[in-house]
Design a protein around this nucleic acid. Structure first.
Length: 426
DNA sequence: TCTGGGGTCCTAGGACCC
DNA sequence: TCTGGGGTCCTAGGACCC
């Protein structure tokens, strides 16, 4: 038997307080201060620095509910700046790829990395190396968990978040039960609110208890996903690393309005605008849609004006990514669900049954279609070069007083990205 | 009076994730 | 006054077929 072990090893790299960390890159003055980043429309708190967490500010909480603590403690507040976070994210992911191209980018601030090629007894050092390189090259602090399965690497990551070193490996530990016993069931990846409730009713409060439940019981009383989670806790990989970027299956564009909308005309403008964005998105990925859903709703939190929520799906005879056709269909759908007398809070469009565009030609293509396609292409090119929505359609409106609120935007242009400072830690 | 059984496909809604 | 946005997958149940 060789002394060098090469068991399956999956790392989960997770950026610490990612959006806050991005804002801090450009603003050294807020490095040690409590900071929060707000969701679209300045609605909820979606990223908190450790200092903000220590003040008791909760994740996902509406901003206005925490305002008192925020003002009292001089917490720095930022509206979200997604183009900035996207750019930093790509930088982090590019850095991670140097360690192994077998990477699954799981979200804007998280990635699974296959580290099976490194020897078992060196794996924690490898983790520390990754952490320090990412910090040095991008300025973003991370936490890293390493284990035999994705679910266990999530567990390890959960523990790493509380450690100074930021790296935790479960590789080579004979019995991880004492560790799993300290992990609450609701902190296990794949266990949400409903499953937590169900497990509690059945006397399961921590990861060890779930691990030791029989698979047949879990499958019978829950579903296959839950039994997969349990298997993974036992160290048996059931959830593969998805290293190839598969084409998406749907595309949603939706927003809450800066102020409530009552007029049909304004709702039409909003939907037309979202339709244009969604069309452009799927065109950029060479996809076409077969099905268009429009939804509108009033606020679910204020019932004194009456609650209304509805959606309408229209299937297209032939898949398309043509803005004009998509806008037209979406407005048609909107007409069938719009009701007078409500204060609308949110609306959106979903394109589903996406498939790869076959150069947009089909049996029924006409010369006119060809012309429209080249028109779409030139719209996309212009918008790409001169900024989003330079060229638009008249129906998308020009005033947009319903646009999202964004009071605290750091206004860092993505062009600044290229002047990003290099952070030296040594 | 008594009204089968088994299969497939599709969809809406729910649960989960970040 | 003020409560985000964008995804995936699974399942139950209905429609339909023979």
């Amino acid at each position: 038997m060789s002394s060098i072990q090469h068991t399956k090893k999956i790392a989960l790299i997770d950026c610490n307080s990612f959006y806050v960390s991005c804002e801090r890159l450009f603003n050294p003055k807020i490095r040690k201060k409590p900071v929060v980043v707000l969701s679209n429309n300045d609605g909820c708190i979606i990223s908190r620095s450790n200092e903000a967490k220590a003040l008791g500010i909760k994740m996902g909480e509406p901003y206005f509910k925490e305002k008192e603590i925020i003002v009292k403690n001089d917490v720095q507040v930022f509206s979200s700046n997604y183009s900035l976070y996207g750019d930093i994210s790509r930088r982090v992911m590019r850095t991670l790829k140097r360690f192994n191209s077998d990477i699954e980018i799981y979200s804007i601030d998280e990635a699974f990395l296959d580290l099976s090629n490194f020897p078992d007894n060196e794996i924690e050092d490898v983790g520390r190396e990754i952490r320090s390189i990412v910090l040095k090259w991008t300025g973003i602090p991370t936490s890293i968990g390493i284990a035999k399965t994705k679910t266990l690497s999530k567990v390890a990551n959960h523990i790493a978040k509380k450690k100074q070193s930021g790296v935790v490996s479960l590789i080579g530990i004979e019995n991880i039960d004492p560790i799993l016993e300290k992990v609450e069931i609701n902190d296990v990846w794949g266990v949400g609110k409903q499953l937590t409730k169900f497990y509690h009713q059945n006397g399961i409060y921590n990861a060890k208890q779930l691990k030791n439940k029989s698979n047949t019981w879990i499958k019978k009383s829950s579903n296959v996903l839950s039994s997969r989670t349990a298997m993974e806790l036992r160290g048996i990989p059931c959830i593969d690393l998805e290293t190839t970027t598969s084409k998406r299956k749907s595309c949603v564009v939706s927003r809450s309005f800066g102020q409530r909308i009552e007029k049909y005309q304004e709702l039409k403008e909003a939907i037309a605008g979202y339709s244009l964005n969604a069309s452009e998105k799927i065109r950029s990925e060479s996809l076409v849609t077969k099905s268009i859903t429009v939804f509108v709703r009033t606020s679910p939190f204020q019932n004194r004006y009456g609650f209304y929520s509805n959606s309408k799906t229209i299937d297209l005879p032939i898949s398309t990514n043509n803005s004009i056709e998509i806008v037209k269909t979406a407005l048609h759908a909107l007409a069938s669900i719009f009701k007078n007398g409500y204060r609308y809070q949110k609306a959106g469009i979903m394109l589903s049954h996406l498939s790869e565009s076959t150069n947009n030609k089909n049996l029924f293509s006409t010369e006119k279609d060809e012309k429209i396609n080249s028109l779409m292409k030139s719209i996309d090119n212009t918008n790409y070069r001169y900024g989003r929505s330079t060229l638009s359609l008249a129906s998308a409106g020009v005033h947009k007083k319903w646009n999202s609120k964004k009071e605290y935007c750091s206004r860092i242009d993505t062009a600044d990205f290229y002047s990003l400072p290099t952070i030296k830690t040594h």
